[in-house]
Computed example of a mutant assay.
Amino acid sequence: MDIDLRKLRYFAAVAEELHFGRAAERLHIAQPALSRQVRALENDLGVTLLRRDRRGTVLTPAGAQLLDDVGPLLAAAEAMVRRVTAAATATRVFTVGFMPGITVTPAVRALTARHPGLDVRLLRTGWEDQVEVLRDGRADVSIVRLPIDQKGLRVLPLFSEPRVVVLPTDHPLAGRPALTVADLAGEHLLQDPDAVPEWRDIAQELRTGERSDVPPIHSVEEKLELVAVGAGICVIPLSTATFYTRPDVVARPVEGLGPGQVCLAWPATRHSRLIHDFTDVAPALAPPPTSP
């Protein structure tokens, strides 16, 4: 069965919005045209994907399954287009994604020494897209900070580094030279608790009410702004805290807080010579300084 990728994109928008009108605006098409395309996809598959009633739009079990499967499929198609387009250019291009605080210069220099004339491009990533840049082809490899979704990826550990808590300078704990995880259990963490399981486990035991929502945060700069105004605290790698030094926040070591792991990741289906050579030189990346 041949499935039209455009119909899958249209379905994904509706499934994510659960509203045909908002999905149509997002796709910049008319709502009736969007409805026709989704119905055509249902006819192609022979199943009902969405149900609409007075309460709104809901996914059927088949629709929920397709939504789980369609993201990687669309990302793979986008990655294929990027790689084919790049292959048609005269100059070889190799793109390295990297998280803030990580210096990639030594590995890039070692790679270009092996491949003179190679155009190495760097792509700064964040927690929300450090893996997505691999899945959609924006990067060939990515230097990531765990935890990540490793499905479909190969992951090579590079080094570990301490993590610190960042507090506003006027916070009651800011004057102490070192803290414990228990000291922070009652604080509002400005990140996914699963990224700091040590804090999560203690905070869950002590919490008496619902945890406040964390607003979408797209960069280290945004996170530090929120810390500075007293919206909460964050746990970040020491190298990142050192790189983003500012006078209205302080970084403190935390006893009982495990180190962060830095790894190299790339799509498991790719076996290019450039990726192989980068895996050779990446372990030479020097760990960041370990003193606050």
Rank of each mutant, 00 (worst) to 15 (best):
K7C: 02
A268Q: 14
P147R: 12
V14C: 02
R92H: 10
H171C: 00
P106V: 02
A178Q: 15
E255W: 12
G126C: 08
A107E: 00
R6V: 02
A182S: 13
P177K: 09
R55A: 03
P147C: 10
G175Y: 02
R83S: 11
R92N: 13
L158T: 03
L264H: 05
G152S: 10
G260E: 07
L257R: 11
F243D: 15
L156S: 09
T125N: 08
V144K: 07
A77W: 09
T245D: 13
D44F: 04
I3Y: 01
V96P: 07
L179N: 08
L59Q: 13
R121M: 00
E128I: 08
G152D: 06
E198I: 04
A139H: 03
G209S: 11
L73K: 11
V250F: 00
A75C: 12
A62F: 12
L158A: 03
R154M: 11
L156A: 01
L41G: 00
Q130T: 07
V166H: 03
E198Q: 12
F243K: 15
A113C: 06
V229Q: 15
V229L: 04
L153G: 01
D213N: 08
A228F: 03
A231I: 08
S272H: 08
R121G: 07
Q261C: 01
S160I: 02
L190C: 02
M99I: 06
K7Q: 12
P172K: 02
I143F: 06
D69E: 15
T279C: 13
L264W: 12
A182H: 13
V281Q: 04
V165G: 04
A241G: 08
W199M: 06
W266F: 14
L59H: 07
V164G: 03
P100Y: 02
R135C: 00
P193S: 01
P157Q: 00
A86L: 12
R176F: 03
E17C: 11
A79L: 10
G137T: 08
T180F: 14
L111T: 08
P162I: 05
V14F: 04
P292C: 01
Q150K: 10
D129S: 06
F94T: 02
P100R: 10
G63H: 09
P162A: 03
L45K: 05
R6Q: 14
Y10E: 12
G152F: 03
M80Q: 15
T125Q: 11
T95Y: 05
R163M: 11
A107S: 03
A24F: 03
E78H: 11
R154A: 12
G71A: 14
G232Y: 00
A88Y: 06
E210F: 12
W127V: 08
L274C: 02
P197S: 03
R273T: 09
T103F: 04
R124V: 07
P237I: 04
L179D: 01
S35Y: 10
L27H: 09
A113W: 13
R55D: 11
L73M: 04
E205H: 15
P168A: 01
